[in-house]
Design a protein around this nucleic acid. Structure first.
Length: 571
RNA sequence: CGGGUUGUGGCUCAGUUUGGUAGAGCACCGUGUUCGGGACGCGGGGGUCGCAGGUUCAAAUCCUGUCAACCCGACCA
């Protein structure tokens, strides 16, 4: 490929709207262009990288027995109504009608489609396990698309669905995908962690998110440096923190004027924050009041609260009225003395506290010397792990202090169990002649997000630094002056030699000044640059520059192809 | 949906407060010099100032409405 024929418009400045480095660089380097909010065109360089990532995904999916198919993007409403998700999915699903008024959706995911696809034809356990996947555009009408390809309304996703005869089989499929994902992101040159994730309403199964480590990422994860534990901040289980035994003092009410935050109470009463108990008031869809109590220095984890309270699907902040109805006072709450209108959830570590400070359920008053296991009505409260993990909390596996970091979720693996096979009546006959529902799993990778994450993790002030495996071109050959016939013909020769050796190589034959071309090379981030100049023509050497290290190397003309091939192995 | 900000050539922005004949840099076209880290000179092309309405002799500028984008909060690959 020649640069004079390549559509790769580079920009000296980044558009004002781009916030993340990866977003700016994708714009500047001519990888993508925006059509509208959350909708992007991929230009040749961007699409080359996308195709390389997709190829890696295909190889790893196929290696585990996956078979590639292609399902429609436009999906009839009926199957979504059958599974119940037509109503559940809400505004995030892009919906449309055809000329006859029939309803359709642009697929946000394909569980319904793939399940109805196979249910009439896969009838026997002998046809299992089955793993089908596709790489295709997905549509989600995000409330707020942002960060370029990180959160867009149309995006390229690989989605694989597994069908097994039993839970053991499903777990094997799950493990295969887990391994494949680890290989895929490793091959893409990403630093990532597979973290335990919450799988919400589905329940029962497991889920891991593959999170690329990056400070700009939207998700937060906790991980252990001692063992291999890693979990999303929402999921991370916590051990009970043992407190040193103390002599118990009698419960006492004290006046705490205007101390409606834990900070004010702590200062007013001059007690350490970890000896205080704070409350967060939620309500659910049915306007039931849910009061969550954690230690003053902890944060409430809404997901864990939802999981702890039966029937709670969404949580909202509760108004003062609900709190007063339950006998509480906003800013001065505790489980002591509330009526039955409140659902009380207490964090497990609160139950081990003694002589603590908590609200008195009346304005400007707190209790001191609260000892929950003595002073709470343990019949009425739910005790659970409901707090957010914090750096330094003990690892649930080995007890070492956990570290926290941020990241970009590029993939997720899920066991679905029978959720969809039951809803859509997808069954097969097992060996013993009994009819059974498939045990399913689903496994997604955001391809564009993977590209963005790779850039987010690999760049410097000059531009992108591609890993060889997903670089749009592995090598660029630059004659410093393309108007010089000797330089140009030498560059063409090198370009041809490298192509013949199977290298993905670009010839920058533009009649631009050397500086302009060098800047573009750095911006686009080709792993290796071969420079042809009067200097190299005289010496008979081939000059290489490594993008990542900035290092210059000189190879003799006779052996440079082998040397470059070898060098590429390390990039 | 709530809060904040912005819409002026392809890109980055000035001009808006105080109405008076649309500007700069980059990019683009022609030309000459230059040529290993985003060169310079000369000459050019390109904007109904987001859109609609209003006020005025006169609107990028003032008023009303509307649309879009971006950033901060609840979702997700």
């Amino acid at each position: 490929m020649k640069a004079t024929q390549l559509y790769a418009p580079t920009l000296r400045e980044s558009p004002a709207e781009a916030e993340l480095v990866s977003h700016k660089l994708m714009f500047r380097a001519g990888l993508i262009r925006k059509a509208a909010g959350g909708l992007y065109s991929y230009l040749p360089l961007g699409w080359r990288t996308m195709k390389k990532i997709m190829q890696i995904i295909r190889e790893e999916m196929d290696a585990k027995g996956g078979q590639e198919i292609m399902m429609p993007i436009v999906q009839p409403a009926e199957m979504w109504k059958e599974s119940g998700r037509w109503a559940v999915y809400g505004d995030e699903m892009m919906r449309l009608k055809d000329r006859h008024g029939r309803e359709f959706a642009l697929g946000p995911t394909h569980e319904e489609m793939v399940t109805t696809l196979i249910r009439d034809e896969v009838r026997s356990y002998k046809q299992l396990p089955l793993m089908l996947y596709q790489i295709q555009n997905k549509y989600r009408d995000e409330i707020r698309p942002r960060f370029g390809l990180m959160r867009s309304r149309e995006f390229v996703m690989k989605d694989l669905y597994s069908f097994d005869r039993d839970v053991d089989g499903m777990n094997i499929s799950y493990q295969k995908m887990y391994d494949a994902y680890s290989r895929i992101f490793t091959r893409c040159g990403l630093k990532f962690r597979a973290v335990e994730a919450d799988n919400g309403a589905i329940g029962g199964g497991h889920s891991h998110e593959f999170t690329v480590l990056a400070p700009s990422g939207e998700s937060s994860i906790a991980y252990c440096e001692q063992c291999n534990f890693a979990a999303s901040d929402e999921k991370a289980e916590l051990k009970i923190i043992q407190a040193a035994p103390e002599e118990l003092r009698p419960l006492e009410k004290v006046s705490t004027p205007k101390c409606h935050t834990i900070e004010l109470v702590k200062n007013f009463l001059n007690v350490p924050i970890e000896k205080t108990i704070k409350a967060v008031a939620f309500m659910d869809d049915e306007e039931r009041l849910i009061l969550a109590f954690v230690r003053g220095d902890h944060e409430v984890n809404e997901i864990k609260v939802m999981n702890a309270v039966e029937g709670a699907n969404h949580l909202y902040m509760a108004g003062d009225k609900l709190i007063e109805d339950a006998g509480g006072a906003a800013g001065f709450m505790s489980p002591i003395g509330l009526n039955d209108k409140a659902i009380i959830v207490v964090d497990q570590s609160v139950m081990l506290m003694s002589n603590a400070v908590a609200g008195a359920n009346e304005i400007d008053a707190h209790f001191i010397n609260v000892t929950p296991r003595r002073d709470f009505d343990t019949q009425k409260i739910i005790v659970a792990d409901i707090r957010m993990v914090q750096a330094g909390d003990p690892c649930p596996h080995c007890g070492a202090p956990l570290s926290m970091t941020r990241g970009i979720e590029v993939g997720q693996v899920f066991t679905l169990g029978k959720k969809y096979s039951e809803a859509l009546h997808a069954t097969f006959l097992d060996e013993d002649g009994s009819t059974k529902n498939f045990e399913m799993g689903c496994y997604g990778i955001g391809v564009g997000r993977t590209m963005a994450a790779a850039i987010e993790q690999n760049n410097d002030k000059d531009g992108i630094i591609w890993t060889r495996a997903i670089a749009p071109f592995e090598v660029v050959v630059v004659p410093v002056n393309a108007k010089d016939e000797n330089q140009l013909s030498c560059a063409k020769k090198i370009h041809a030699d490298l192509m013949a050796a199977g290298v993905d190589v670009l010839l920058d034959d533009r009649k631009e000044r050397a500086g302009v071309k060098f800047k573009d090379c750095d911006l686009i981030g080709y792993p290796l640059r071969v420079t042809v100049s009067p200097k190299t023509l005289d010496s008979g050497n081939v000059e290489i520059k490594i993008r990542r290290s900035g290092e210059f190397l000189n190879f003799a003309r006779g052996e440079y192809v082998e040397k470059i091939l070898k060098l590429l192995e390390t990039l």
